[in-house]
Amino acid sequence: MFVVTSAALLVGMGLVMCRALLGPTAYDRVLALNNIGTKTVVLIAVLGFLNGRPEFLDLALAYALINFIGTIAVLKYIEYGDLGADSRPDGAVPEGFRPGARSDGSLPDRGAT
């Protein structure tokens, strides 16, 4: 049954790859890429069972995290053209923004939470 599941995963990846190649916008491609990544995670897990090597699950776990970060990174690059950009287009810090401030606006007492 693992063979059937992996075949379904591969066919699904092929279909989504068509969408990644067809486009038409960059967002379609990113979405397809993210989807292929999710399928890859599941495929790694299924292949681990197919080969009787459950250690593959660690790879799947790592890939799940990399896939998410990769999607966000590509989206940020598309939107700002620069991975190091401030997340606001004008680079402005919103008024009253203090790193680490609590929701009521007070700064935490360092070390004595």
Binding site: P99, A101, R110, G111, T113
Partner: peptide, 10 residues
């Protein structure tokens, strides 16, 4: 996390 002040309900 403590130094960043993120040990809250959120």
């Amino acid at each position: 996390a403590m130094r960043m002040g993120t040990l809250d309900r959120e």
